[in-house]
Amino acid sequence: MSDSARHEALIDALGAELTPVRRLPPPWRRALGWLLVVAAAAVVMFMRYGASTMLHRWGAAPDLGVAAGGAVVTAITAALASFMLAVPGRSAAWAWLPLPSALLWIGSSGLGCLRAHIPGMPLMGWHGANDCLVFILSFSIPLSGLMIWLLRRACPLRPVLTAVLVGMASAAASACLLEICHNFDATASDLLMHALAVAIVIGANALMGGRLLLKS
Protein backbone atom coordinates (compact mmCIF):
# COMPACT_ATOMS: atom_id res chain seq x y z
CA MET A 1 0.00 0.00 0.00
CA SER A 2 1.46 3.41 -0.98
CA ASP A 3 1.83 6.11 1.66
CA SER A 4 -0.95 8.29 0.28
CA ALA A 5 -3.25 5.26 0.16
CA ARG A 6 -2.27 4.48 3.77
CA HIS A 7 -3.21 8.02 4.80
CA GLU A 8 -6.48 7.86 2.91
CA ALA A 9 -7.34 4.52 4.51
CA LEU A 10 -6.55 5.90 7.96
CA ILE A 11 -8.51 9.11 7.34
CA ASP A 12 -11.50 7.07 6.15
CA ALA A 13 -11.25 4.86 9.22
CA LEU A 14 -10.98 7.82 11.60
CA GLY A 15 -13.89 9.50 9.81
CA ALA A 16 -15.96 6.34 10.17
CA GLU A 17 -15.57 6.32 13.93
CA LEU A 18 -16.05 10.09 14.36
CA THR A 19 -18.38 11.10 17.16
CA PRO A 20 -19.27 14.61 18.34
CA VAL A 21 -17.01 15.86 21.13
CA ARG A 22 -17.50 18.31 23.95
CA ARG A 23 -15.02 21.12 23.40
CA LEU A 24 -12.49 21.77 26.15
CA PRO A 25 -13.37 24.93 28.12
CA PRO A 26 -10.83 27.80 27.83
CA PRO A 27 -7.69 27.36 29.99
CA TRP A 28 -8.53 30.33 32.20
CA ARG A 29 -11.86 28.76 33.11
CA ARG A 30 -10.25 25.42 33.91
CA ALA A 31 -7.62 27.18 36.02
CA LEU A 32 -10.40 29.05 37.81
CA GLY A 33 -12.09 25.75 38.66
CA TRP A 34 -8.91 24.47 40.31
CA LEU A 35 -8.39 27.78 42.14
CA LEU A 36 -11.94 27.58 43.48
CA VAL A 37 -11.06 24.29 45.18
CA VAL A 38 -8.07 26.03 46.79
CA ALA A 39 -10.34 28.93 47.79
CA ALA A 40 -12.82 26.49 49.37
CA ALA A 41 -10.00 24.98 51.44
CA ALA A 42 -8.97 28.52 52.48
CA VAL A 43 -12.53 29.34 53.58
CA VAL A 44 -12.62 26.21 55.76
CA MET A 45 -9.28 27.16 57.32
CA PHE A 46 -10.40 30.75 57.97
CA MET A 47 -13.50 29.39 59.70
CA ARG A 48 -11.29 27.16 61.85
CA TYR A 49 -8.41 29.57 62.66
CA GLY A 50 -9.75 33.04 61.88
CA ALA A 51 -7.74 35.78 60.18
CA SER A 52 -6.58 37.77 63.21
CA THR A 53 -3.23 36.01 63.75
CA MET A 54 -2.38 36.27 60.08
CA LEU A 55 -3.31 39.97 59.94
CA HIS A 56 -1.33 40.65 63.14
CA ARG A 57 1.79 39.08 61.60
CA TRP A 58 1.36 41.03 58.39
CA GLY A 59 0.81 44.29 60.30
CA ALA A 60 3.95 43.79 62.39
CA ALA A 61 6.09 42.51 59.50
CA PRO A 62 4.85 43.64 56.07
CA ASP A 63 7.46 41.46 54.34
CA LEU A 64 5.45 38.41 55.45
CA GLY A 65 2.37 39.90 53.80
CA VAL A 66 4.34 40.57 50.61
CA ALA A 67 5.63 36.99 50.63
CA ALA A 68 2.07 35.66 51.07
CA GLY A 69 0.86 37.92 48.25
CA GLY A 70 3.67 36.58 46.05
CA ALA A 71 2.61 33.01 46.86
CA VAL A 72 -1.04 33.77 46.00
CA VAL A 73 -0.09 35.32 42.66
CA THR A 74 2.32 32.44 41.97
CA ALA A 75 -0.45 29.89 42.58
CA ILE A 76 -2.78 31.74 40.20
CA THR A 77 -0.25 32.37 37.43
CA ALA A 78 1.34 28.90 37.60
CA ALA A 79 -2.10 27.27 37.43
CA LEU A 80 -3.06 29.43 34.45
CA ALA A 81 0.27 28.73 32.72
CA SER A 82 -0.05 24.95 33.16
CA PHE A 83 -3.57 24.89 31.70
CA MET A 84 -2.36 27.07 28.82
CA LEU A 85 0.58 24.77 28.08
CA ALA A 86 -1.74 21.78 28.02
CA VAL A 87 -3.43 23.03 24.85
CA PRO A 88 -1.55 22.46 21.56
CA GLY A 89 -0.51 25.63 19.76
CA ARG A 90 -0.25 27.84 22.85
CA SER A 91 3.02 29.67 23.31
CA ALA A 92 5.68 28.07 25.54
CA ALA A 93 6.35 31.60 26.83
CA TRP A 94 3.43 31.07 29.22
CA ALA A 95 5.85 29.09 31.37
CA TRP A 96 7.58 32.36 32.35
CA LEU A 97 4.40 33.93 33.70
CA PRO A 98 4.76 32.78 37.34
CA LEU A 99 8.45 33.69 37.54
CA PRO A 100 8.19 37.34 38.77
CA SER A 101 5.71 36.48 41.53
CA ALA A 102 7.75 33.40 42.51
CA LEU A 103 10.84 35.61 42.85
CA LEU A 104 8.82 38.04 44.99
CA TRP A 105 7.57 35.17 47.16
CA ILE A 106 11.03 33.64 47.65
CA GLY A 107 12.80 36.98 48.01
CA SER A 108 10.38 38.38 50.63
CA SER A 109 10.47 35.11 52.57
CA GLY A 110 14.27 35.31 52.67
CA LEU A 111 14.27 38.95 53.75
CA GLY A 112 11.96 38.03 56.64
CA CYS A 113 14.84 36.20 58.29
CA LEU A 114 17.07 39.31 58.25
CA ARG A 115 14.83 41.82 60.07
CA ALA A 116 14.13 42.14 63.83
CA HIS A 117 11.68 39.62 65.22
CA ILE A 118 8.04 40.51 65.82
CA PRO A 119 7.58 41.30 69.56
CA GLY A 120 5.55 38.63 71.32
CA MET A 121 5.49 36.27 68.37
CA PRO A 122 7.05 32.83 69.04
CA LEU A 123 10.02 31.64 66.99
CA MET A 124 9.84 28.33 65.25
CA GLY A 125 12.22 25.48 66.07
CA TRP A 126 13.10 22.49 63.89
CA HIS A 127 10.15 20.49 65.22
CA GLY A 128 7.63 23.16 64.22
CA ALA A 129 9.38 23.60 60.86
CA ASN A 130 8.87 19.88 60.23
CA ASP A 131 5.14 20.43 60.70
CA CYS A 132 5.28 23.07 57.96
CA LEU A 133 6.97 20.57 55.64
CA VAL A 134 4.28 17.97 56.35
CA PHE A 135 1.51 20.56 55.90
CA ILE A 136 2.77 21.75 52.51
CA LEU A 137 3.32 18.19 51.26
CA SER A 138 -0.09 17.02 52.54
CA PHE A 139 -1.96 19.77 50.71
CA SER A 140 0.22 19.68 47.60
CA ILE A 141 -0.40 15.99 46.88
CA PRO A 142 -4.19 16.22 46.41
CA LEU A 143 -3.94 19.62 44.67
CA SER A 144 -1.32 18.28 42.23
CA GLY A 145 -3.35 15.12 41.69
CA LEU A 146 -6.46 17.13 40.90
CA MET A 147 -4.65 19.36 38.44
CA ILE A 148 -2.93 16.45 36.67
CA TRP A 149 -6.30 14.71 36.37
CA LEU A 150 -7.75 17.87 34.79
CA LEU A 151 -4.75 18.31 32.50
CA ARG A 152 -4.93 14.74 31.21
CA ARG A 153 -8.17 15.66 29.45
CA ALA A 154 -6.17 18.16 27.39
CA CYS A 155 -2.99 17.39 25.43
CA PRO A 156 0.17 18.62 27.18
CA LEU A 157 2.82 18.44 24.48
CA ARG A 158 5.51 19.52 26.98
CA PRO A 159 4.63 17.17 29.85
CA VAL A 160 7.61 17.80 32.13
CA LEU A 161 7.44 21.60 31.87
CA THR A 162 3.70 21.46 32.48
CA ALA A 163 4.24 19.18 35.49
CA VAL A 164 6.83 21.60 36.94
CA LEU A 165 4.20 24.36 36.74
CA VAL A 166 1.67 22.04 38.39
CA GLY A 167 4.15 21.53 41.22
CA MET A 168 4.76 25.26 41.51
CA ALA A 169 1.03 26.05 41.60
CA SER A 170 0.31 23.35 44.19
CA ALA A 171 3.24 24.27 46.42
CA ALA A 172 2.38 27.98 46.28
CA ALA A 173 -1.30 27.29 47.01
CA SER A 174 -0.31 25.07 49.97
CA ALA A 175 2.03 27.78 51.29
CA CYS A 176 -0.87 30.27 51.08
CA LEU A 177 -3.09 27.93 53.09
CA LEU A 178 -0.32 27.40 55.63
CA GLU A 179 -0.11 31.17 56.07
CA ILE A 180 -3.61 31.15 57.59
CA CYS A 181 -2.57 28.99 60.55
CA HIS A 182 1.14 29.82 60.70
CA ASN A 183 1.43 31.48 64.10
CA PHE A 184 5.20 32.01 64.02
CA ASP A 185 7.71 34.65 63.01
CA ALA A 186 10.05 33.91 60.07
CA THR A 187 13.25 32.03 60.93
CA ALA A 188 15.98 30.46 58.85
CA SER A 189 14.91 26.93 59.83
CA ASP A 190 11.29 27.67 58.87
CA LEU A 191 12.31 29.20 55.56
CA LEU A 192 14.57 26.23 54.84
CA MET A 193 11.73 23.78 55.45
CA HIS A 194 9.36 25.78 53.25
CA ALA A 195 11.95 25.84 50.47
CA LEU A 196 12.58 22.12 50.89
CA ALA A 197 8.84 21.36 50.73
CA VAL A 198 8.39 23.44 47.58
CA ALA A 199 11.43 21.77 45.96
CA ILE A 200 10.10 18.29 46.83
CA VAL A 201 6.65 19.09 45.41
CA ILE A 202 8.06 20.53 42.16
CA GLY A 203 10.62 17.71 41.80
CA ALA A 204 8.05 14.97 42.45
CA ASN A 205 5.68 16.52 39.93
CA ALA A 206 8.39 16.81 37.30
CA LEU A 207 9.27 13.15 37.84
CA MET A 208 5.86 11.52 38.25
CA GLY A 209 3.47 14.15 36.90
CA GLY A 210 5.52 14.40 33.71
CA ARG A 211 5.09 10.65 33.15
CA LEU A 212 1.39 10.76 33.91
CA LEU A 213 0.90 13.63 31.47
CA LEU A 214 3.03 11.88 28.85
CA LYS A 215 0.54 9.00 28.82
CA SER A 216 -2.41 11.33 28.37
Binding site: L14, R23, L24, V87, P88
Partner: peptide, 8 residues
Protein backbone atom coordinates in the same frame (compact mmCIF):
# COMPACT_ATOMS: atom_id res chain seq x y z
CA UNK B 1 -8.33 12.34 16.29
CA UNK B 2 -7.72 11.66 19.98
CA UNK B 3 -7.42 15.30 21.07
CA UNK B 4 -9.76 17.00 18.60
CA UNK B 5 -11.79 18.32 21.54
CA UNK B 6 -8.84 20.57 22.52
CA UNK B 7 -9.09 22.62 19.34
CA UNK B 8 -10.64 26.05 19.83
Amino acid sequence: HRVRHTYD
